[in-house]
Amino acid sequence: MASQGTKRSYEQMETDGERQNATEIRASVGKMIGGIGRFYIQMCTELKLSDYEGRLIQNSLTIERMVLSAFDERRNKYLEEHPSAGKDPKKTGGPIYRRVNGKWMRELILYDKEEIRRIWRQANNGDDATAGLTHMMIWHSNLNDATYQRTRALVRTGMDPRMCSLMQGSTLPRRSGAAGAAVKGVGTMVMELVRMIKRGINDRNFWRGENGRKTRIAYERMCNILKGKFQTAAQKAMMDQVRESRNPGNAEFEDLTFLARSALILRGSVAHKSCLPACVYGPAVASGYDFEREGYSLVGIDPFRLLQNSQVYSLIRPNENPAHKSQLVWMACHSAAFEDLRVLSFIKGTKVLPRGKLSTRGVQIASNENMETMESSTLELRSRYWAIRTRSGGNTNQQRASAGQISIQPTFSVQRNLPFDRTTIMAAFNGNTEGRTSDMRTEIIRMMESARPEDVSFQGRGVFELSDEKAASPIVPSFDMSNEGSYFFGDNAEEYDN
């Protein structure tokens, strides 16, 4: 783990906690998980779902989305002020799938948001429990990260689609708070800032007046979040320049895209947490497990152990491969979309394939898809080993990566060399080191050039047997250095459309 220093740990961010010791953190995270579980059980009762239907990941996603929508204050306010045809701002819903006479049927349900809020609060001892809501947002974000390569979004903001390893959390809503900021990748933060800068260039009043003052505060806050992700002084200094700019424009845009590229080699610290679907927490609570009393951590053995003992089902389209669908969801559960496939294969105990080789589309089923041909199958979400999630980018030494994705962002704290394609990355730096950030740029390029592919990161860190909950005997895996390590390699994943 990167030293926490003055930073709060993510469990504290996750639970809005002030400084807590490890036991208190485990208890408050457990409380959050228990609340999600209780809410899910109650919703299944309301909807009269069978046990099997309640364990269907598509039903879980609909129920999670309903509660997130019920608590989305800004959108609710907007919907009330701008009524649109056929949208009731006070209601929320989605597809629920039921097994009827041996076939899967889709039923569109509609609930009062007020009623959903009441059920959620009741499951969370009367609190709004925003930490639990954020947790579900991060699960949705991790699922998107594993399912889609955001080529269009990258290109629109002047970045290269091969930089997708920097895009963790790119679909997280803005209201996801400190826990959300911690899991956002460098590219995601750059993209958010670039969008602001572009608006400022096109709209003279963007930075002016009372609204402009708020915009400015948001801009500086985002700059500080991004600065905190960088691990070298030169990158941090460049972020200070971007933040202090009187009138952010093209120079800042250039600096930010430069920094994003540099992060492929001088990786930023991005938190990883295993956020599971509500249909995993519900049955665990129903079986009598007391998360608050037992304590829970999002970055240790607990999620692995929970998945070892969970039964989750998914709808499967006619030509999809259930094992591939399982891999997709497994990666999402562990926030591992940008991790090295060699490491993932070792931990999972079966070969993890790149996205383009998977015969599976996303987990969600569109409303126009034919239910007649839908089957369902068990998702295999178990693992051979477990490993500690990392909050750091690993040290800054790398190795060759593949054509589709030119770097990785480690999820697990496991000893290995970190793949990246130096030639491709360095070719993108057209040696432009003039301007006010020239000395920093020169320094950053120097550090990137001296990074050695064969150097090892996370020295001495290994994986653990599932029986080793105290992480007492690390097993340090050895990897084939020459092997392909990137998930979005030469990829044809669908595009994420909101």
Rank of each mutant, 00 (worst) to 15 (best):
S3C: 07
E14I: 02
T15R: 00
G17A: 14
E18T: 11
N21S: 15
R26D: 05
S28V: 05
G34F: 01
G35F: 08
K48L: 12
Y52P: 00
Q58I: 01
N59F: 02
A70C: 15
D72T: 02
N76S: 15
E81V: 03
S84Y: 01
A85S: 13
K87L: 02
K91E: 12
R98M: 11
R117W: 06
R117T: 14
R117N: 03
I119T: 15
Q122P: 00
T130E: 07
H135K: 04
L143N: 03
Y148V: 05
R156Q: 10
M167G: 06
R174T: 08
R174N: 03
V194D: 10
V194S: 11
D203F: 05
R204T: 01
F206Q: 13
E210L: 05
Y219L: 14
M222P: 01
Q235P: 07
A237I: 02
M238Q: 15
D240I: 03
Q241P: 10
R243V: 03
E252N: 10
D255S: 02
G268Q: 15
V270I: 14
A284S: 11
S287M: 14
F291A: 13
E292F: 06
Y296F: 14
V299R: 07
L306D: 00
V312L: 11
V312K: 00
L315A: 00
I316D: 00
N321H: 03
N321M: 03
L328F: 14
V329Y: 00
V329Q: 00
A337S: 13
D340I: 02
V343W: 08
T350V: 04
S359E: 14
V363D: 10
T373I: 14
L379I: 10
A387E: 00
I388D: 03
I388W: 09
S392Y: 04
N397S: 10
P410C: 03
F412V: 11
R416H: 12
D421M: 02
A427N: 12
A427V: 13
S438R: 00
R441C: 04
T442Y: 01
I445K: 08
I445P: 01
A451K: 14
A451S: 13
R452H: 03
V456P: 00
S457F: 10
E469V: 11
A472Y: 13
M481H: 03
D491Y: 12
